[in-house]
Amino acid sequence: MTLRIPNHWAPYLLISPFLILFAVFGLFPLLFSLWLAFQSWEPTSGIEAMRFVGLDNFVFALTDGWFWKSLRNTLWLAIASGVPQHLVALPLAVFLHRSFGRWRGLVSGAYFLPYITSTVAIAMLFGSLFSTDYGLVNQALHALFGMEHIHWLRSPEAIKPAVALVVFWRYVGFNLVLYLAALQTIPQDLYQAAKLDGAGPWQQFLRITLPGLKPMILFGVTLSVIGGLQLFEEPFILTNGKGGADQQAMTVGIYLYRLAFDFSDFGAASALAWIMFGVIALLTWLTNKAFAERQAQS
């Protein structure tokens, strides 16, 4: 006897593996984190030790000085690493698109390589480059400008620029590939017509290239905003998970991790995660609104 499944159930049956995996590994942790944000709980005490505390975890997070310091660090790193990514990737993409022809895929792949490289490998590489006594960065600065050796990863003044440089180096290739893909969608007829009208390269960039790239610029900037506010791996590995000298490289992600796994305060960590969800959603909305208003004016 064969089991016959009604035809209208077939699509649901085919996508059921994804739905089950999403429910177990995606939806359940999300809802559990939201519920945990209103609880006081140490995992070592067991599930039965959970105690409802209302909004206490959110009040604690919003009045905690370390949270505000980590948020300032996160915003500084997001701006210092995110803005140069686009200022470099955009003109570089235009240059590669115009100058390298069929070889641009190979060249852009070289720029894209850091994005797919292991974060641990990248952190170890830059940890060696930023070494105080034998690092290539200090050796180059001393040879070129006579500067004394800088404690890049142990100085409160130098740790942030060092982390920002690593993040910039890793993600600039990703934005480059985005802009290269968008440039190939702009009709070449527009450039030919502009040349016939006497428009130079700069005028073509301002009047054709930049407007044609606006949707991709919005997409790339939005990803940079979200990624910058979630920054965790690079500063965590470069500072051995402690936030660096004077906690100058402690991002919200690192502080959230330490709240949960160093101090066993999973309730406060969950509340902090949902607060950051709101911050990211707000800044993403403001970014989209700013681009929409600018596009409407133009």
Rank of each mutant, 00 (worst) to 15 (best):
K69P: 02
S70Q: 07
L71Q: 03
L71N: 02
R72F: 14
N73S: 12
T74P: 14
L75K: 01
L75H: 05
L75D: 01
L75A: 12
A78P: 14
I79A: 06
S81Q: 03
S81R: 01
S81V: 01
S81Y: 00
G82E: 04
G82Y: 01
V83P: 01
V83A: 00
P84L: 15
H86M: 13
H86W: 07
H86R: 09
L87P: 00
A89Y: 03
A89E: 02
L92S: 05
L92C: 04
L96G: 06
H97R: 08
R98D: 07
G101H: 02
R102P: 10
R102L: 11
W103E: 02
R104Q: 15
V107E: 09
V107A: 04
V107C: 06
S108P: 13
G109H: 06
A110C: 13
F112E: 07
L113C: 03
L113K: 05
L113M: 13
P114F: 10
P114R: 10
S118R: 07
V120D: 07
V120C: 05
I122T: 14
A123Q: 01
L125P: 14
F126H: 09
G127K: 13
S128E: 13
S128I: 15
L129T: 06
F130C: 10
F130I: 10
S131C: 06
D133W: 06
D133A: 08
D133F: 05
Y134S: 11
L136N: 03
L136I: 10
V137W: 10
N138S: 12
L141Q: 04
A143W: 14
L144A: 08
G146F: 15
E148Q: 15
E148K: 15
H149W: 04
H149V: 00
I150P: 11
H151W: 11
H151M: 03
H151V: 04
L153P: 00
E157W: 15
E157G: 09
I159N: 02
K160R: 13
